[in-house]
Amino acid sequence: MALLLLKVNRLSAVFWDVDGTLADTEMGGHRPAFNMAFKELDLPFVWDEELYNKLLAIPGGIRRVKFHAEACGMTLSQDQLDQVRDRKRLHYLERVHEGHVHLRPGVKRLLHELSHAGVKQWIVTSSGTASVMALLKQIQKQIPSFDGVVASDDVASGKPAPDGYLLALKRSGANSAASLAVEDSAAGLSAARAAGLRCLLTPSPWDAEALRNSCDEAAAVLEHLGDPGQPTTVLSGASCQEGAVTLKYLETLLSVPDR
């Protein structure tokens, strides 16, 4: 009896989101940094975890500030928004340096496995370059170096627009059909898909919206990437028998018919 063999494609590049994907930056990093900036600038906003969870549906920190201010009946000038951005950035960098931001489960392990296999690894994020570089500096002894970074400063439109991913594909020379994005949010998933990339979604614990509405667009949805003693749970897509996302698992996702 003839056996039907599934052809597994070789993975050439992985494009990583940062906030909520590489590391838990939001609740312990960005949120308190915004609150400190609001207090310094005498703005009547306090973002608790419940409120910030809702605001995370809006990609980009300053866009969140503008949206929330308008919802509160305030119109902030560009100068005020710039001041919030600058003060918040300083406080975020301080929190990163103080160790308040940690890698998500499985990230360190998978980064090293992909690096050893010669897979290109790029960052594609809606955060500014300064914030990304501060995080990378803090964790540089734990992880291999990335081949490149595309941040919000590099493109005209952030996620869910595909601009960042398209630029990363161009700069890296990677073939979209042999590449994957790793994201945690609905906006990031939309950006990756619009750029022609399959996407592995690992929703942040607080991003229920991405989990609820985006499963059909993702190649797979997992609780996290998994580690020894901390196996992941597959929420949608191909089973992960090892309990952890590996190079072999990612290459399996490339072979699944696109949705």
Rank of each mutant, 00 (worst) to 15 (best):
M1K: 04
L3N: 11
L3S: 14
L3K: 13
L4P: 06
L5H: 13
K7R: 07
V8T: 13
N9C: 05
A13Q: 09
V14T: 01
W16N: 01
D17Q: 00
V18T: 07
A23F: 12
A23P: 06
A23T: 08
T25S: 14
G29P: 07
G29R: 05
A33M: 02
F34V: 04
M36I: 03
M36G: 12
A37G: 03
E40Q: 14
D42F: 06
D42W: 05
L43I: 07
P44W: 10
F45S: 02
E50Y: 10
L51F: 02
Y52N: 14
Y52Q: 03
K54H: 15
L55W: 02
L55V: 04
L56W: 08
L56K: 15
I58G: 00
F67A: 13
H68F: 08
A69C: 04
A69G: 03
E70V: 06
E70S: 14
T75R: 12
T75E: 11
L76C: 04
S77H: 09
D79W: 11
L81S: 01
D82M: 03
Q83W: 00
R85T: 01
K88S: 02
K88T: 01
L93Q: 15
R95P: 03
V96R: 06
V96H: 04
H97Y: 10
V101R: 12
G106Q: 01
V107H: 10
K108V: 00
R109F: 07
L110A: 08
E113T: 02
L114Q: 06
A117D: 09
K120F: 02
K120T: 06
Q121E: 12
W122K: 00
W122R: 00
T125L: 03
S127P: 02
G128V: 06
T129Q: 13
A130S: 12
M133P: 03
A134Q: 11
K137I: 02
Q138P: 05
P144Q: 05
S145E: 15
F146L: 03
V149I: 15
V150C: 00
V150W: 04
D153A: 02
D154L: 00
A156I: 10
G158Q: 07
G158D: 05
G158E: 01
G158V: 12
P160V: 08
D163R: 00
L166M: 14
L166P: 13
A168E: 03
L169V: 12
L169D: 05
K170S: 15
S172V: 09
A174E: 06
A178Y: 13
S179P: 09
S179D: 15
S179G: 11
A181K: 01
V182N: 06
G188E: 13
A191E: 13
G196D: 08
G196A: 12
C199D: 05
L201W: 09
T202P: 10
S204A: 15
S204Y: 01
P205R: 08
P205E: 13
W206Q: 11
D207E: 10
E209A: 13
A210M: 04
R212F: 01
N213E: 11
C215T: 09
E217S: 14
A219T: 08
A220N: 11
V221N: 12
L222P: 15
E223M: 06
G229L: 04
P231W: 02
L235I: 15
G237H: 01
A238F: 01
E242F: 03
G243W: 13
G243T: 09
V245R: 05
V245N: 02
T246V: 01
L247P: 10
L250P: 08
E251V: 07
E251A: 10
L254I: 09
S255G: 13
V256C: 08
D258T: 09
R259D: 07
R259E: 09
